[in-house]
Design a protein around this nucleic acid. Structure first.
Lengths: 142, 142
DNA sequence: TGTTGCACTTGCATTTTGCAAGTAGTTAAA
DNA sequence: TTTAACTACTTGCAAAATGCAAGTGCAACA
């Protein structure tokens, strides 16, 4: 099962940039994990398992491994509890922020039932760059 | 095969905007079709079959149907040839442009072997908004 | 020393994909 | 008027990925 993770050795279909992105996170689950790490304060395997979309545990394990190999997510130890594993976004992972915001804006526009808060969507439309900087400065602080 | 296309009736995992985007085009092929329609001047089924990534014909048919149902792609008849079908992006599809550009920028930054032209990436970094307007004005012209 | 919590693995049925081949409705040439 | 060619698909089947439920391993705590 899951023969491949994407590495330099994995046969890639092309080096088109859209295709590179798809081969990195173009499936139904990976961006949800990134979302939870980026926006929802989740850090542990157990927390990542509890999203609304109910990812199954084997898929989560596979995707985390893949994201680690791609240097999008880093796996670390919790300082206070040796048995606990902490997942976080690397700089490469954090650089997905503008993509995440564009996805949010598009869905906010076209999904009549979107959960995205109106105020957030307004902020996105009005001053995306500033929103990006605000979120990034929150990361730098911690 | 292919039981679902996403419609109002399809059970959706959540109305998180990231999830909405994933359920619209979160697979390994859909964005490649959109790329070819958006940037590579492709219009027909046959042309869409010839990409570097070699999409197979049943998957292409399925994804086009899906994209039509989602109102991202429109299917039209060629004026001069009744047997020929013309696919094009709807306004909802064209609104994916900023997402496509962000994906390109990210991949351009992290894929050492990216095919994205250096000059295009420069333009993206320096004045993304202007690039978007230039591309959009090209669409309005036709 | 045994129980609990956390991070995964494993097995297996179901679904989706990839590949090759086939069909159907024009249009164009003989 | 028949026939070949072109375009847009559809079909069948093997292989791979997914979803679900249950199990394992290891450290900490009681």
């Amino acid at each position: 099962m899951f023969e491949y993770v994407m590495t330099e050795k994995m046969p890639s279909r092309s080096h088109c940039p859209i295709n590179y992105a798809l081969e990195s996170f173009g499936d139904k689950w990976t961006l949800l994990i990134i979302r939870d790490l980026m926006f929802n304060g989740k850090q542990s395997y157990g927390e990542l398992l509890t999203s609304d979309e109910k990812i199954s545990t084997n898929i989560l394990a596979d995707r985390l491994k893949r994201l680690e190999d791609l240097d999008i997510v880093a796996k670390g130890a919790d300082a206070s509890n040796r048995t606990k594993v902490i997942y976080s976004l690397t700089p490469k992972g954090r650089d997905l922020l503008p993509i995440m915001l564009e996805l949010t804006e598009w869905s906010g526009k076209y999904d009549a039932q979107t959960e995205a808060p109106k105020s957030f969507l307004k902020h996105l439309e009005n001053d995306k760059q500033r929103l990006i900087e605000i979120i990034r400065s929150g990361w730098d602080a911690s």
